[in-house]
Write a protein that binds this DNA or RNA. Structure first.
Lengths: 202, 202
DNA sequence: GCATGTATTAACCAAATGGTTTAACTTTGT
DNA sequence: ACAAAGTTAAACCATTTGGTTAATACATGC
């Protein structure tokens, strides 16, 4: 029972914090939706700040390994790229609020990310090895020359950006959620095609 | 004198609202930085909400015409793409907070965006005509086939995303602001090359 | 120099918000 | 059945925060 309730609160809190950020989130609303009062919130989590930290910690613990795992995957170059694109799109479809939340909150307080990266003894190695593989592919003449950071930005930009732009996209085109998700699923293939042509050696 | 003071307040308010969002912004802080007290804020702008609306309105009036102008520019295809990429990068370098602000804050209350789009009798036309030009290019066999929304996402994703990812990028790579801006300036060319190869007909 | 509109401050206020205490109620192990 | 531990609610509190008022200073045109 206790665990259920705690998890329920955390779920609701996550929704609020990710969608609205720390300041716009009201503990009272979280309590209401969880069917409890603020005293219970205090009982379980002591303070809004602590609750928030728990949410950040869990969110990053959930998401960083997936992303880092894909980037560091021990695969041939194109399989690896495909895994990255696929992992990002799949993960973000499940938690659409994550990219903006991470980038927004982290544009203000980076400590959270830094702490969590350290906790997980984060592998730069993942990115490093991906960059090395890119360079090896270029050296071998199997893909065109391009500075690695730029290629990383290109891949992630095409993959992640549409999710962040969704509100604007939907507002301007009046597209439904289903339309949007369908489009995002198409993108896996579209992006791979695009990348392969872009990196093709003439 | 009056105008100067008002403009000063607006400048400071913009900084706060764009960086921290509505809820995390304190009117007291704005007042302090402007060297006035809250009564003056009330005197000039009546309320936080009104001040916020003024900031949104000005920000969008500044930025939407630039973006829409580039997208709707009456140019040959590749010149147009180059203008888009260039305009976005230049504009965002000047106001780095804009992308996240628009996508985060405005994703919650879209009314602001919608109202401003209407005020400016926003030209879907711009995007429509760009899409038509893309289709014409494909028809003529001058660029590869790709669904227009995907190409738009690809262009804007590569262009805009890196700015939003800057905090993460800097945290992970420990890059300085200058390094980052230099990288972004390089990107104009990199993105154009990338696009040209990606859309090249075999 | 004075009347009139403008600018500014100090003090104050009400609502919102996060947090806490106390006492009662429920569950659980023995 | 009962003590101990865990859970819950009602009432309460302190602080923060946006907003307001009323009196005063300042500038400006006549």
């Amino acid at each position: 029972m206790r665990k259920d309730k705690k998890e329920l609160i955390l779920d609701i809190a996550r929704k609020h914090f990710l969608q609205k950020g720390y300041s716009a989130t009201r503990t009272q609303e979280i309590a209401d939706e969880a069917g409890i009062n603020k005293a219970m919130l205090h009982y379980y989590f002591t303070s809004k700040e602590k609750l928030y930290q728990e949410i950040i910690s869990r969110t990053l613990r959930n998401v960083i390994p997936k992303f880092a795992g894909a980037i560091g995957a021990d695969l041939a170059f194109w399989e690896r790229v495909e895994k990255i694109v696929d992992t990002y799109i799949t993960t973000i479809i499940e938690n659409p609020d994550i990219p903006i939340f991470i980038m927004y909150e982290l544009s203000q307080k980076q400590e959270h990310l830094i702490i969590e990266l350290k906790k997980q003894s984060f592998k730069f190695q993942a990115i490093q090895s991906f960059i090395q593989q890119m360079q090896a592919e270029m050296q071998a003449g199997r893909i065109r020359q391009i500075a690695p950071p730029h290629l990383v930005f290109n891949i992630l930009g095409m993959t992640v950006f549409p999710f962040m732009a969704k509100p604007i996209f939907s507002t301007i085109f009046g597209a439904s959620d289903e339309t949007f998700i369908a489009l995002m699923k198409e993108r896996k293939q579209v992006i791979m095609d695009f990348l392969k042509h872009a990196l093709q050696v003439d």
